[in-house]
Design a protein around this nucleic acid. Sequence first.
DNA 1: TCACATTACCTTGACAGTCTAGGTAACGCT
DNA 2: AGCGTTACCTAGACTGTCAAGGTAATGTGA
Lengths: 110, 110
Amino acid sequence: MAHEAPGMMHGTLDALILRTLVGGARHGYAIARWLEEATDEMLTIEEGSLYPALYRMERKGWIEAEWGTSELNRRAKLYRLTSKGRKQLAAETEHWARFAAAVSKVLLPA
Amino acid sequence: MAHEAPGMMHGTLDALILRTLVGGARHGYAIARWLEEATDEMLTIEEGSLYPALYRMERKGWIEAEWGTSELNRRAKLYRLTSKGRKQLAAETEHWARFAAAVSKVLLPA
DNA sequence: TCACATTACCTTGACAGTCTAGGTAACGCT
DNA sequence: AGCGTTACCTAGACTGTCAAGGTAATGTGA
């Protein structure tokens, strides 16, 4: 199920999670499922990475949590993007684009 | 001089270094300079990351070292790509391409 | 009714890789 | 003599990810 080299997510995980919340509040489990589906299982978030990341970002004020219920009527903690988080996402997206372009320029044949 | 978010190099550094050696043997310092120049200072390798990475890769048999002299006639340790390293580079490049595509698909607006 | 898979969250500890911040030494130039 | 550059090296901290465990509630099928 791991389609990813270990450590590869390093640095991009926050942005990916934030991006997942653009369409509205989601709970942790749903975030992971959505990302997997959106990338054809190419990117997967381990739960041991997901939850710590959520707490980290909540502490930084990028997201806000609230207990509620999932679509399947289970207890779930719903995360919502803050305006600060929106700015952070924009910055990280910008940065990713430049970083990826630089790496690709070096790595990939013309 | 740091144009890079900390930790962003995570996972791609090896591939970038290996790529630098495709054109022939180079010493550590030259590898760092070359990469900076090739990316307009966008990607920089700290020496505290570079040398450990070189030892790691030497241990794995991806590169081989030999003492020699630099273009400026100074003592320098020249690193050469092995065939194993060439295969590794190909694999990591492939992986980068797929990873970057997946992340971009999620992150960047259509 | 019982077992099992799924949903959903959480935590601990290890690990790897990067970075900061130091250091050495030799060379060339002024 | 002093300084900037080239070139290599290392220790220690830090951070984020991962593996591997765990809890509890719900739904499904036998």
